[in-house]
Amino acid sequence: MRTRAAVLWPGQSTWSTEEITLDPPASGEVLVRLVATGLCHSDHHLLAGGYPGMRLPMVGGHEGAGVVEAVGPGVRGVRPGDHVVLSVPVPPCGACAACLGALPHLCERGALTGTGFQISDGTARHHARGGDLGVFVFLGTFAEHTVVHETSCVVVDRAIPLEIACTMACAGTTGWGAVLNTAEVRPGDLVVVVGVGGIGANAIQAAQFAGARAIVAVDPVPFKRAVAARLGAVAAAPSLADALSVVRDMTEGRMANHVIMAAAVGDGRQLESALALVGKRGRVVVVNVHSADENVATVSLRNLQSLEKQVVGCLAGSWDGRRGIGFLADLYLRGRYDLDLVVTRHYDGLDALPQGYRDQADGAVVRGVIRLSDGS
């Protein structure tokens, strides 16, 4: 079939929105008509060359939701007409050491991400200009249609609007998982969330859900600090330096229990400031993506050792994305998860991608979403 997609070609630094051809789903695969896709900064990172191991050309996008239109042989988990949110970061194999150790988000299949080809057989279903296209994170949601493995599909209730449900795929599962799984926030903890984008906005809601006694948001943009307050943050600061006195006063010098680093782009120079915000056995969770060649960060090793402070990385919320999406969908249906405060702007069609990312860079949105078709 023919459809449209936003493709990153070798040597280019802009998305090329064009017609592509799409093969039918093979064994274990699903054809999905995308209804909406979120604008995650990781896709902009790809555009800027931040993933040098990725094979180009590649269809971007990994935060998507849509309607199943067809299934390949052997598919049992979904059927045509199902509403699905697409799961990241990788369809887990269920058999490698990571999967058997209850760490499916670290499945060894992740080593194949750079090819962008189908996880089932290593070949392409997406094609353009006479060649094969990869798809970002095995999904390629910057498209009107895509073919994915059935284990990337999570069926959700039709009562959940797909044009906001798409953000559960990455921002939702990552933000909530960083708090619940990686940080392991407990009732009574004080949590600092750095960056009030899609992930940070979800992290604030997760911290409140986990019983945090107070949440402090850090973001240089006044609009985002205001959103943080509506989500449950009791205080907000424009920088890590400004947050230091806020947290010190709130805790009589004991400092925070957790800092969630959820800025659009990571900066190793901020790690010492983040560690200064936590007290004894405090944990800093690094969620934001760093440059591939960034390998230096300065910290006080004495404080790290003598106060038993911790720095922990977080990929995709440290959990199986399918489980995370199911959890969040249930919370939404019970009125305990506010997606309308996370998705602050919608755009129509793939041609709006550049504007959406300009708005993100300007701090004008928490999470932007591209509408691609109707949700019926």
Score class of each variant (00 low, 15 high):
residue 214 A to H: 14
residue 214 A to L: 02
residue 216 V to F: 08
residue 218 V to I: 12
residue 218 V to Q: 11
residue 219 D to L: 13
residue 220 P to E: 06
residue 220 P to R: 13
residue 220 P to M: 06
residue 221 V to C: 02
residue 221 V to L: 14
residue 221 V to W: 13
residue 222 P to V: 10
residue 222 P to D: 10
residue 223 F to M: 03
residue 223 F to I: 00
residue 223 F to R: 14
residue 225 R to Q: 11
residue 226 A to R: 07
residue 226 A to H: 08
residue 226 A to P: 08
residue 227 V to L: 09
residue 227 V to P: 06
residue 227 V to C: 08
residue 227 V to F: 03
residue 228 A to I: 02
residue 228 A to F: 11
residue 228 A to V: 01
residue 228 A to C: 13
residue 229 A to V: 09
residue 229 A to Q: 15
residue 230 R to Y: 05
residue 230 R to M: 10
residue 232 G to Q: 08
residue 232 G to T: 12
residue 233 A to Y: 12
residue 233 A to G: 07
residue 234 V to T: 15
residue 234 V to Q: 15
residue 234 V to D: 14
residue 234 V to K: 15
residue 234 V to L: 11
residue 235 A to T: 03
residue 235 A to W: 05
residue 235 A to N: 13
residue 236 A to T: 15
residue 236 A to C: 12
residue 238 P to R: 12
residue 239 S to L: 07
residue 239 S to Q: 01
residue 239 S to P: 04
residue 239 S to I: 04
residue 240 L to K: 01
residue 240 L to Q: 00
residue 240 L to N: 07
residue 241 A to E: 12
residue 242 D to Q: 09
residue 242 D to F: 04
residue 242 D to L: 09
residue 243 A to H: 00
residue 244 L to Q: 14
residue 245 S to F: 00
residue 245 S to V: 01
residue 245 S to T: 12
residue 245 S to E: 15
residue 246 V to A: 14
residue 246 V to M: 14
residue 247 V to E: 13
residue 247 V to N: 13
residue 248 R to V: 04
residue 248 R to E: 15
residue 248 R to A: 14
residue 249 D to S: 09
residue 250 M to L: 14
residue 251 T to M: 02
residue 251 T to G: 04
residue 251 T to Y: 06
residue 251 T to K: 07
residue 252 E to A: 13
residue 252 E to S: 14
residue 253 G to F: 01
residue 253 G to P: 03
residue 254 R to I: 00
residue 254 R to N: 06
residue 255 M to T: 02
residue 255 M to P: 04
residue 257 N to G: 06
residue 257 N to Y: 11
residue 258 H to Y: 07
residue 259 V to G: 08
residue 259 V to Y: 07
residue 259 V to C: 07
residue 262 A to S: 13
residue 263 A to I: 06
residue 263 A to S: 15
residue 263 A to V: 15
residue 263 A to Y: 01
residue 264 A to L: 03
residue 265 V to S: 10
residue 266 G to A: 12
residue 266 G to C: 03
residue 266 G to M: 12
residue 267 D to Q: 11
residue 267 D to F: 03
residue 267 D to M: 07
residue 267 D to H: 13
residue 268 G to M: 00
residue 268 G to S: 10
residue 269 R to G: 09
residue 270 Q to Y: 01
residue 270 Q to D: 01
residue 271 L to Y: 01
residue 272 E to V: 03
residue 273 S to M: 02
residue 273 S to Y: 03
residue 273 S to E: 11
residue 275 L to S: 01
residue 275 L to R: 08
residue 275 L to A: 10
residue 276 A to Y: 02
residue 276 A to K: 10
residue 277 L to C: 02
residue 277 L to T: 04
residue 278 V to L: 07
residue 278 V to W: 10
residue 279 G to E: 08
residue 279 G to W: 11
residue 279 G to A: 06
residue 280 K to D: 09
residue 280 K to Y: 14
residue 281 R to Y: 11
residue 281 R to P: 00
residue 282 G to S: 11
residue 282 G to T: 06
residue 283 R to M: 09
residue 283 R to Y: 04
residue 288 N to F: 07
residue 288 N to D: 14
residue 288 N to M: 04
residue 289 V to I: 15
residue 289 V to Y: 13
residue 290 H to V: 00
residue 290 H to P: 00
